[in-house]
Design a protein around this nucleic acid. Structure first.
Length: 204
DNA sequence: CATGGGATTGACT
DNA sequence: GTCAATCCCATGC
């Protein structure tokens, strides 16, 4: 990144890697959650590398799909690669990627990304300047990427929100570890949270 | 139809 | 460290 004449601009070229398709998402949700760490999340030319995810599956009570396809949870049963976007705590928007075959309620919550592309736009939307505070939480990154409830049930495979796998980002993400999920009160013992070890942009 | 809790964040002590 | 903000939706009467 460089700053010239007061007009700060990102000079990182946009990713050229392969966009993830249906076959990537149509797998066990734990594999999808782990493999999404190191991938690239983009919307409107803004985004970065995924550094933290959590898996949710209808078989465990922390998942919204646990009680079946209720009005809120029905998106979780849609085609793999669908975006599940929902409203939390009265003010926050959280982004998930639906996984497993259609009819199975499961998704991966994107909890944090490392900001890379168009950082200036993210700073404006977040009203923050510290890099580590831009996307280090599930509601922070949706605000930074301008993702709202209108994206719920849209496609991550051919819609405006893109998920890509670059050639080398497993190297960029480094070692990935599995720990307990954050902020839930049920099934707290499951180690279904995945994050890049030592990355400064992982949530608190 | 009324009620209570939640996959969080940011401000404040 | 504590706590309020704020509203959808699942539940129960």
């Amino acid at each position: 990144m460089t700053s010239v004449g007061g007009a700060s601009q990102s000079v990182v070229p946009l990713p050229s890697g392969k966009r993830l398709g249906s076959d990537f998402y149509e797998r066990p949700v734990l594999e999808v959650a782990r493999d999404l760490v190191g991938c690239v999340l983009l919307h409107d030319g803004v985004g970065g590398m995924i550094v933290e995810t959590e898996a949710y599956h209808e078989c465990e009570p922390a998942c919204h799909a646990h009680r079946g396809p209720t009005p809120r949870a029905k998106t979780l049963f849609d085609e793999p690669g669908t975006a599940y976007v929902y409203f939390s705590y009265g003010m926050h928007v959280l982004l998930n990627a639906v996984a497993e075959p259609a009819g199975v309620g499961a998704a991966v919550l994107i909890r944090a990304i490392e900001p890379i592309w168009n950082i200036e736009s993210m700073c404006e939307r977040r009203n923050r300047t510290a890099l580590e505070d831009l996307c280090s939480g599930p509601a922070k990154l949706t605000q930074a990427l301008a993702v709202d409830l209108a994206f719920n049930s849209g496609s991550l495979i051919d819609g405006p929100i893109e998920v890509r796998r670059e050639g080398a980002e497993q190297t960029a993400a480094g070692r990935i570890t599995a720990t307990r999920r954050v902020g839930i009160s049920r099934a707290i013992e499951l180690p279904w949270r995945f994050h890049a070890v030592g990355n400064r942009h992982v949530s608190a």
